[in-house]
């Protein structure tokens, strides 16, 4: 049985993946735009400025859209059916992810439900995944 795909950083994305390994969701912000963006690049995709900085995102997000996949991808045999989701971070950017800590059914996965980041080990790496947020808390 194959294992789940493991992302391989490039020099430009390394800080993001280092953050994941440290249990932090680190993304970038453009200073002139005062706006966060994703995926990692050493310049702002909106205005082109290279006055950008890494920061730790809150990890709070909402469920933007998803499918529940019944034909598992490599390494996902035991997870199927599982959601492949896009979440919108509190800071604005969206990212693809999986939803953990809840059975992935249409009834459980309601669009715009609040989520909180957590991390899943993949070999020497960790990837950000999201779980339903606890009422009133930030974990």
């Amino acid at each position: 049985m194959s294992s789940k795909p493991v992302p391989k950083p490039t020099p430009e994305t390394q800080p993001f993946w280092d953050g994941c390994s440290a249990g932090e969701l680190r993304i970038q912000r453009c200073k002139p735009c005062d706006a966060a963006y994703f995926y990692p690049r050493p310049f702002c995709p909106r205005c082109g400025s290279d006055e950008v900085e890494w920061f730790r995102a809150s990890g709070r997000a909402r469920l933007y859209s998803y499918v529940i996949n019944h034909r598992p991808g490599p390494g996902f045999d035991e997870d199927a059916p599982y959601a492949i989701a896009v979440v919108e971070l509190e800071e604005g950017p969206r990212m693809m992810t999986n939803i953990v800590g809840v059975e992935n059914t249409p009834e459980n996965l309601v669009l715009d439900m609040p989520l909180q980041v957590t991390f899943e080990r993949r070999d020497e790496m960790a990837v950000p995944v999201f779980q339903p947020a606890v009422e009133g808390g930030t974990r």
Binding site: K4, P5, V6, P7, K8, P9, T10, T13, W17, Y39, N69, R71, P72, G73, P74, G75, F76, D79, Y82, I84, A85, M95, M96, T97, N98, R122, V127, V129
Partner: peptide, 9 residues
């Protein structure tokens, strides 16, 4: 890096 890890097929 940003989609394949989530079981896209």
């Amino acid at each position: 890096q940003f989609e394949a890890p989530y079981g896209v097929l």
